[in-house]
């Protein structure tokens, strides 16, 4: 497994507890690359998992966690932490790798992904691993839980922020739109959703399976503040989160345009890589291309 210059976890903790960037913005692309390496290695070792929808998430998760989240890697139960729910639970290798990079999961544990007895289940399991905010994996459920967290934050006069990452196929679920209606009702400006708009789902391309266009217009019509960004541009993602926080009367949806399988050319936009592991040769090629 690739060696990596580990972060100083004490420093991460001090900064992250104050919602300060844990690394300078210029270093985010390097961190993103390292996360992609881990995603490939984890899924290759497990010989199962979802590379396409994990790779598309890398900039989103690394940018938000390293630049915009208030958290304590050694205390997942801290009441004042910002929360991030990965509603598209099958993308969890990207989340595990990011959390491990930040010191919240031991690095050796990454290689136990999907093994019997591992805390790193194929889809997030909060009872086993409290640093994941919600058990997900049945698509469509995360945003409702995020609404509840945002409501609780308001009731308790806490200033934590709630993030929720959704898949583009996932928003075909009716429950997503029930939550989409509820969040503006209570003007939940402490809630930011991010759509990983990678144009693919399991059986094929979203536009062929059940089109969601025009996604941005749909969320706007539901009274969300909507920002469209290039989901592989960390600066744009960070700016969008800043923008979201200036809005005080409604939740924000960041429509992040991404590429499924991003970073590994033979996986990009090829839906056969939704849910299968690379073999030895493909793993080598992927790691070489990523420069791992």
């Amino acid at each position: 497994m690739a060696e990596r210059n580990p972060l100083d976890i004490e420093e991460v903790k001090q900064r992250a507890r104050k919602r300060e960037p844990v690394i300078p913005m210029e270093q985010v692309p390097d961190a993103v690359r390292a996360i992609r390496c881990d995603i490939i290695e984890m899924i290759a070792k497990a010989q199962s998992g979802h590379p396409g929808g994990s790779l598309s998430l890398a900039e989103i998760l690394v940018t938000i966690f390293s630049q915009k989240m208030r958290f304590d890697p050694s205390n997942p139960e801290w009441e004042d932490r910002d929360r991030l729910i990965l509603s598209k639970g099958h993308g969890v290798p990207a989340l595990y790798a990011t959390l491990s990079w930040l010191g919240a999961i031991p690095r050796e544990e990454l290689w136990t992904l999907r093994q019997a007895g591992s805390r790193l289940q194929g889809h997030p399991a909060r009872a086993l691993l409290p640093v994941v905010e919600a058990s997900t994996g049945s698509l469509g459920q995360g945003l409702s839980i995020a609404v509840g967290m945002a409501l609780a934050g308001r009731l308790d006069h806490k200033d934590y922020h709630v993030f929720c990452v959704l898949g583009d196929g996932e928003i075909q679920e009716g429950q997503v739109w029930e939550a989409a209606m509820a969040a503006p009702k209570w003007k939940l400006s402490n809630l930011t959703a991010i759509l990983d708009y990678n144009k693919g789902q399991l059986d094929g391309f979203v536009r062929d399976i059940m089109d969601i266009e025009s996604a941005a217009a749909k969320w706007r019509a539901f009274n969300w503040h909507v920002i469209e960004v290039d989901g592989h541009d960390p600066t744009a993602i960070a700016a969008a989160v800043d923008d979201a926080k200036t809005v005080t009367d409604r939740p924000t949806m960041i429509v992040a345009h991404t590429v499924k399988g991003k970073g590994v050319s033979f996986m990009e936009n090829d839906m056969s890589w939704h849910g299968k592991a690379p073999n030895e040769e493909q793993t080598k090629a992927a790691l070489a291309e990523l420069g791992c």
Binding site: S48, R114, Q121, G122, H123, A125, S135, T136, G137, S138
Partner: peptide
């Protein structure tokens, strides 16, 4: 079903 875990 194996590796996907409980949610599936």
């Amino acid at each position: 079903i194996g590796e996907d875990g409980y949610s599936q």
